[in-house]
Simulated scan of single mutants.
Amino acid sequence: MSIINMENLGLTETFIQESKLYKDLFIGRISSQSKNLYKIITEKGEFTAEISGKLRHSIRDLSEYPAVGDFVMVDRSDNSQGNVIIHHVLNRKSVFARKVAGTTNDIQVVASNIDIVFICMSLNNDFNLRRLERYLSVAWDSGATPVIVLTKSDLCNEIEGRLNEISTIAIGVDVLVTSTISDNGYQSVKKFLSSGKTVAFIGSSGVGKSTLINRLLGESVLETSGIRSDDKGRHTTTRRELILVSDGGVVIDTPGMRELGIISADLAKSFADIDELASKCRFNDCTHNSEPKCAVKKAIHDGVLSAERLENYKKLQREMKYDGLNSKMIEKEKINDMFHEVGGMKNARKFFKEKNKNR
C-alpha cells in the first residue's frame, strides 16, 4: 500500500502541532459528506467515517460539524474494523461560509482550510457584477485569497468590455479568462495549483466549475452537463468534494449556489474604493445620501463610481447588520437607520449654518 503524503494534502506544521494534543488519535482530512457519513483521507487512503457520540453532543450549531476541507482527529487510519470515528475537528485556518437558504439563521460551511477561492463566473448570461461583489466580500472574509475565474470565453464576443467592468470592482484581485474547448484554455488556472495548496471552486450553477476541474485533473472525474436553451449552464455538482491533483495540491468542487446569504463579509477590501472616498467626506458619519461635500456622491456624479455599486455596498451592509435578528429587532434597526439618515440632514443644516456664519 502506498502512503499518501498528507503535506501535499495541505497538512501544515500548525495542524501537526495541534494534533499532538490528542494522544492515540490519527489525523485525516474530510473529502466529502453524505448525510451523516463522511469520506476521510488519511495517509493510508480514503475511508468512510462518522462522528463520535461525544462530538455530536458537544456541537452547538451546524457550522461546528465537520466540513469538507477540515482536518480531523480519528480513532484509526483505516476502516479494517468498521467506519473510522471522528473525535475532534482541528482549528480552521480559513472558512468560506454562507447563511443557509430560507428563514433559518444556520451557518453552512461550504469549504474550510482553503488557500485560494476561485470565484467562477461565465462570460455568457451568468455575468453579473453585483453578484461578483457579493462573492468577493465573502471570499476576502474567509481568510483565503480570492481569484476571479471567467469561464466560457468562447461564448463571449465582448471580453475586453467585461474585463473593463470587472476592473472597477475587483481591486487587488487576479482575473483569469478560461475556455475548456481549447488545449491551453485553462493553463492560467493551473499555475495556482501546487503541493500543499487547497483551492476551492465557488460560483453559480452551471458556470463550468466541474468541466474546468476535469481539465485540470486530466480526466473526467466529475460529471458535467451542457448548455441550456437560455445560454445558461446546467447544474451538475450536488455535493462538496475534495480531490487530490496528481501534480500536487487539492481542489474542492462545490454545488452551484442560487444565492449566497452573507454571515460576515470584508467590505473594507471588496469595496476599498468606496471606503477611500468616504474618508474624504465632510462628515465622518456621512450616509452618502443628502449631506453636502459627500465625496462618494461626487464620485458618482463625475462617473468615477457607479450608483449601482454604492447601492450594493449599502445592501451588503444592511444584510450583515440584520443577520441573526428577528423581525421585531430588524424593524427596530430600520427605524434607527431612518433616524440616522435624518442625522445626515442635520449634518447638512449644520454645514450651511457654519458656512453662513463665516460670511
Rank of each mutant, 00 (worst) to 15 (best):
T42A: 02
T42Y: 00
E43C: 08
E43R: 15
K44F: 08
K44M: 14
K44W: 05
G45A: 11
G45L: 09
F47E: 06
E50Q: 15
I51F: 11
I51H: 13
I51M: 13
S52R: 11
S52D: 07
S52I: 02
K54S: 13
K54R: 13
R56N: 13
S58N: 15
I59G: 06
R60V: 04
D61H: 10
D61M: 04
L62I: 10
S63L: 08
P66E: 06
A67M: 09
V68A: 08
V68C: 13
V68Q: 14
V68P: 09
V68D: 10
G69W: 10
F71C: 10
F71N: 14
V72H: 13
M73Y: 14
D75G: 14
R76G: 00
R76Q: 12
D78W: 06
D78Y: 08
Q81F: 14
N83M: 08
N83R: 13
V84D: 06
I85M: 14
I86E: 04
H88M: 05
H88W: 06
H88L: 05
V89C: 15
L90T: 04
L90M: 12
K93T: 11
K93E: 09
V95K: 05
V95D: 00
F96C: 07
A97N: 02
A97C: 03
R98V: 03
K99H: 10
K99A: 13
K99C: 11
V100K: 15
A101T: 14
T103A: 14
T103S: 13
T104M: 07
D106Q: 14
D106N: 15
D106P: 07
I107Y: 07
I107L: 08
I107S: 09
Q108H: 15
V109D: 07
V109F: 08
V110I: 01
A111S: 11
A111T: 02
N113R: 12
I114F: 03
F118N: 01
I119Y: 00
C120E: 02
M121N: 01
L123E: 06
L123A: 04
L123K: 03
N124C: 03
N124G: 00
D126P: 02
